[in-house]
Amino acid sequence: MEAYEIVKLARDKKRPTAKAYTKELLTNIVELHGDRAFGDDKAVVGGIGELNGMPVTFIAVEKGGDLKERVYRSFGSPKPEGYRKALRLMKQAEKFKRPILCIVDTAGAYCGEDAEERGQGQAIAQNLYEMMDLKVPSISIIIGEGGSGGALGLSVSSKVYVLENAVYSVISPEACAGILWRDAKKADEAAESLCMTSEYMMKFHVADGVFKEDFSDFKGMCAEIKETLYNDFVQMKKEAPEEIIERRYEKFRNIGVFAEKKASSEKGDID
């Protein structure tokens, strides 16, 4: 399949949104609201629930179903208070030694005057910084769009999974084509060049695994995801907090491809 076709699939309005996953994966959900500073971002849904009987904190970016809900959820683009709400819940999870599950589906962080005034950049930066240092295991799943810093702000986790037709990118193909070639219509070409599909996420070690998609049997598909998540959490919960932090740091530390001009210490190659 062409990369841009996959982008379209990832954005498809008929695709299940985050709440469908939380409903299938978790039981006994208690939703929690607010960042305790400014407000409650509707694009970020969070709380506590049970995954196979294991209490976990969940954070999900919700795009919304019908148009009315999509507007209410800012089309799944979190504002600074959304990232701060997420961080508050993650720190709470750390205190009570609960694993963290992030379900990510966003075109990007909210783009607007108010978001800038309230420090969108600072909010995302703070999440990267603190998530890297969480003493409890964390898993992020990108279920549709992984749009740039807006997605990364909830994806610095011990493990990162992507759905088969999810995309994860530094910039949207439309914006990329607009900037580089001054032609947003070349988005298909940009999508190809940006290497944003699940296949590349594995190649560049950004993702730890890919979940197969089968929306005709959503229950069955989620059951498999659930099993993987549960086993991962059980495994990781055995590790000491320092180990959890170190492993997460190493995972991200090793991502990148560059040239090192010394024959003796070649590093960062992909193959």
Binding site: A125, L128, Y129, M132, D133, S148, G149, L152, S155, V156, Y168, S169, V170, I171, C176, I179, L180, S193, L194, C195, M196, Y200, M201, F204, V206, R248, Y249, F252, R253, I255, G256, V257
Partner: peptide
Amino acid sequence: MQEGILSLMQMAKVSGA
């Protein structure tokens, strides 16, 4: 952007350091 997702990941990597 010419380094795609790898450039995005640098944000996480540096923040960790």
